[in-house]
């Protein structure tokens, strides 16, 4: 056999060595070598919980979006939703890892010798009452119009938060936000264009997107209600009080609604607790049961 250089065929290395696959057996610390020192004057428990709730928002919506894999209206949208889910999963992974580094006591205990990394322990071994995501991200996908409307609301809100979070005193959060806002601007504009298309499409597509928006609206005010952990994080200079982005988010949405000729919904806020406090809808428990079942069955498993 002729000798050949490693890069002669770009895929040759992939075929002989399984360890080469990034999504194979090899977990890596997503913050390897990153300085995770908690800034002066910041309560590590507050920073950890704040990162955790922002991570949970992304993790739960990421999982909901992956439920579209192979089921979207067409191949392009299938791939788009999977890509958006991957971006959010990446943000979740960094935020959960940051939470664990700031306050290791927030990570569920696993059997001695378990190879499960901290961010996975947080994702797969917490119960729904320990998740701090807003309820908007956990309700089932519904149809494509509902998924579009939810993504528009979520990405508009999160982009505004991340724009400010890029100035966080915590260098890790600041870097995660500075990176994430580039991704979120693609997500928001993707959802905005589809919202417009559906609202101005057929009678049926307009009916569906109006129903979708009206159905989600009661969960919307929760995103701007300052939770004590958000207030504390904002006061410490590491977080953003969501109430402070309400006007900006509203202005962006108003532009989309005007372009789509859609009236702003008027549904009253949904009653009940807040997702940030772990008070969720039934849907989250069912979603987590499916998301976590394999990991929980094999707490010592390597993937």
């Amino acid at each position: 056999m002729p000798a050949h250089h490693d890069h002669e065929s770009v895929y040759s290395g992939l075929l002989v060595n399984d360890a080469h696959w990034a999504f194979g057996t090899d977990f890596e610390d997503p913050l390897a070598g990153v300085d995770t020192t908690v800034p002066d004057g910041v309560d590590p428990a507050v920073l950890a919980r704040y990162c955790l709730v922002l991570g949970d928002d992304a993790l739960v919506l990421s999982h909901r979006l992956t439920e579209w894999c192979g089921r979207a209206p067409d191949l392009e949208e299938d791939i788009a939703l999977a890509n958006i889910a991957l971006d959010l999963l990446g943000q979740a992974r960094l935020l959960l890892a940051r939470a664990a580094a700031a306050d290791p006591s927030c990570v569920p205990a696993l059997p001695e010798g378990s190879p499960v990394p901290a961010e996975d322990a947080l994702a797969y071994f917490r119960a729904d009452r320990d998740f701090g995501n807003v309820r908007l991200v956990e309700v089932p996908n519904g149809d494509f119009a509902e998924t579009t409307a939810r993504l528009l609301l979520f990405a508009t809100w999160r982009l505004a938060l991340f724009e400010r979070l890029a100035g966080s005193r915590d260098a890790v959060l600041s870097a995660v936000a500075a990176k994430g806002r580039k991704e979120l601007s693609y997500h928001r504009d993707f959802a905005g264009r589809w919202f417009l298309t559906l609202a101005q499409g057929t009678e049926e597509s307009r009916r569906r997107v109006l129903d979708a928006l009206g159905g989600l609206w009661p969960l919307w005010p929760e995103l701007f209600r300052s939770h004590p952990v958000e207030t504390a994080a904002a006061q410490a200079g590491v977080g953003v009080d969501p109430a402070s982005v309400a006007a900006e988010v509203d202005a962006v949405l108003a532009r989309v609604f005007a372009a789509a000729d859609v009236p702003r919904p008027e549904a009253a806020p949904r009653v009940g607790g807040a997702g940030r406090d772990g008070a969720h809808t039934e849907a989250l428990g069912r979603m987590l049961a499916e998301m976590q079942v394999v990991a929980r069955a094999h707490p010592g498993g390597r993937w």
Binding site: A22, E28, P30, D87, G90, Q91, K179, G180
Partner: peptide, 10 residues
């Protein structure tokens, strides 16, 4: 490149 880049370990 992106937050969810799956190729970092590779």
């Amino acid at each position: 490149t992106y937050s969810g880049c799956p190729a970092m370990a590779a």
